[in-house]
């Protein structure tokens, strides 16, 4: 299973290095969303207050594109069916695609946090940085797991481009809430102390574990059907 996961993740990341779709299209899209929010809100005080939510909202919108891209690779020439027809361990496929997705998401989040510091004047202390990194890791695992699970579910469906957001956005609401609250603490938004952010990581951890386990178990039957 681990060998399969490593093979799948390496393949997905090699394709991204070759095609640069995430680097040249999705990350600029997310940065553009941040810039447009800055234009729309046009107030430093408001921007500073809403920066954590905007970072995670832009991340979640971008997840839709990254997941769609991840499964377009598998469905364009029937590779996902070929993987299943070849008896490749579905748990390994799930873990590999989740790992590749998480790697891409971490890069995206680094850019978005950087953008929020520049555009929204977000301020991160050393202890806030630790909270922010932990938040990003847990939220990324959750988003990557649920994204891979629902991406696999939508991959064979008609109208998958519109189905994926409908399936995914309601489910990731806990990540949006938990990650935003924790990031508010990390940024010190409205004078919130860093210590107030840590309890929200429990929600993110539960979400990450739940969807990692459910995804690993359910992915095979879902893509087989």
């Amino acid at each position: 299973m681990l060998r399969t996961a490593k093979t799948i993740a390496a393949k997905d990341l090699r394709i991204e290095l070759r095609s640069r779709v995430i680097a040249n299209q999705v990350i600029p899209f997310a940065a553009l969303v941040m810039i447009l929010f800055a234009f729309a809100l046009d107030s430093d005080a408001v921007l500073e207050r809403v920066a954590p939510g905007l970072v995670w909202l832009a991340t979640i919108f971008s997840v839709l594109f990254i997941v769609a891209r991840s499964f377009a690779l598998e469905t364009t020439d029937g590779a996902l069916e070929a993987l299943r027809a070849a008896g490749v361990d579905p748990m390994g496929i799930f873990l590999g695609k989740t790992l590749a997705l998480a790697t891409q998401l971490i890069a995206l989040e680094a850019v978005l946090v950087g953008a929020s510091v520049v555009l929204y004047r977000a301020d991160v202390s050393a202890s806030g940085g630790v909270l922010l990194v932990t938040t990003a890791i847990l939220a990324t695992v959750g988003l990557a797991s649920v994204g891979t699970l629902y991406g696999g579910l939508a991959a064979g469906a008609k109208g998958r481009e519109t189905l994926l957001p409908l399936l995914l956005l309601p489910v990731v609401a806990p990540v949006l809430i938990g990650a935003t609250r924790a990031t508010e603490s990390a940024f010190g938004t409205n004078g919130i102390d860093v210590s107030e952010g840590w309890p929200w990581l429990g929600l993110l951890a539960v979400f990450a574990v739940l969807f990692s386990v459910v995804g690993a178990v359910a992915f095979g039957p879902l893509v087989d059907d």
Partner: peptide, 21 residues
């Protein structure tokens, strides 16, 4: 089923290839 699949190669209307590789 899984053991069978490991010894079988199915090529249908698609080739199961990754065009960027």
């Amino acid at each position: 089923r899984d053991a069978v699949r490991r010894h079988v190669g199915l090529i249908g209307h698609h080739n199961g290839l990754y065009s960027d590789l």
